[in-house]
């Protein structure tokens, strides 16, 4: 059983909804990245999504785009991201880590080399936004090495394809709550609830919902029907501009704790 599977099993046993914060690796401050990751866990994160910066993040809105640009400007690449995961693992052997990003950095790094280094560092899964199931043959070395491929499902996904995604899902299935980019603000929980309920009955893996969840209220609205919620842009925005470890930690915890409380009160 993988670290991700263990974590979701534990959540299910406890009757809790998982909390998955997304942060862009290297933002707001490369020097305090590992401290930020621990702060997220201390504030109640069940799994961390770590964004690998990419110059051309087609599926992301301005907040994550700018965070990527800032990280790249500071020289953050896959090597740094993997180093941080390795360092994080020194103190935390349980919290699963999923790297989220785009294919080109992995392609250029080399799939086999990436797979080996990521597993050695303690990465559990990858979510490569621009690598749909149809193109995922290139990820074979990652699967062989034991990295789980997190798949996306969307409101536009056709029923036949949804069945295929549900059958192929591993770790968790990430349901994109609306057709759009990360950080956009329209969320209609009624539509999502029906969709996610249906997917949960069919998917081989738990279902996390992301895109458009900004705070305790929107997280709580989703909590009723999802196995986990993902929060990205709003958190990245809150962290942006913080420079020292204390402030980064305080902001992360100030943002995440009310959401954790809302999920647990559900």
């Amino acid at each position: 059983m993988s670290r991700i599977d263990r974590r979701f099993a534990k959540l299910k046993a406890a009757g809790r909804t998982g909390l998955i914060p997304f942060v862009t690796a290297g933002d707001p401050a490369p020097a305090h990245m590992v401290a930020l990751m621990h702060a997220l866990v201390d504030a109640g994160a069940d799994l961390i999504e770590l964004g690998v910066p990419f110059s051309d993040p087609m599926a992301d809105g301005p907040v994550i785009q700018h965070a990527s640009e800032r990280a790249i400007a500071q020289g953050v690449g896959l090597k740094e991201v993997l180093d941080w995961v390795g360092e994080f693992r020194g103190r935390d052997a349980d919290t699963p880590i999923v790297l989220m990003g785009y294919l080109n950095p992995v392609e250029i790094h080399g799939y086999a080399r990436f797979a080996q280094e990521a597993v050695a560092a303690g990465v559990d899964g990858v979510l490569l936004v621009d690598c749909p199931l149809e193109e995922s043959a290139v990820l074979q070395p990652l699967r062989v090495a034991g990295l789980q491929q997190i798949l996306l499902a969307a409101p536009t996904t056709a029923p036949s394809r949804m069945a295929q995604l549900c059958g192929s899902a591993e770790g968790f299935l990430y349901y994109v709550s609306f057709a759009g980019i990360t950080g956009a603000a329209h969320l209609s929980t009624g539509d999502i609830a029906a969709r996610v309920a249906d997917i949960r009955t069919r998917a081989k893996a738990p279902v996390a919902v992301g895109f458009g969840i900004r705070d305790a209220a929107s997280a709580k609205a989703i909590a009723g029907f999802a196995d986990a919620v993902v929060i990205g842009s709003a958190l990245v925005e809150r962290l942006s501009g913080a420079t020292d470890a204390a402030e980064i930690t305080a902001r992360a915890q100030g943002f995440l704790q009310p959401i954790r409380a809302a999920l647990d009160a559900h």
């Binding site: 087609m58 599926a59 294919l103 936004v129 621009d130 690598c131 749909p132 149809e134 193109e135 798949l151 996306l152 499902a153 969307a154 409101p155 536009t156 996904t157 056709a158 394809r161 995604l165 994109v176 057709a179 759009g180």
Partner: peptide, 22 residues
């Protein structure tokens, strides 16, 4: 039929665009 020219081409997009592209 997958839009591949040998090793090149394909559809490397986010899930949301798979249906409109199809």
């Amino acid at each position: 039929e997958h839009g591949r020219f040998g090793n090149y081409g394909g559809s490397y997009v986010a899930e949301t665009l798979m249906a409109p592209l199809a």
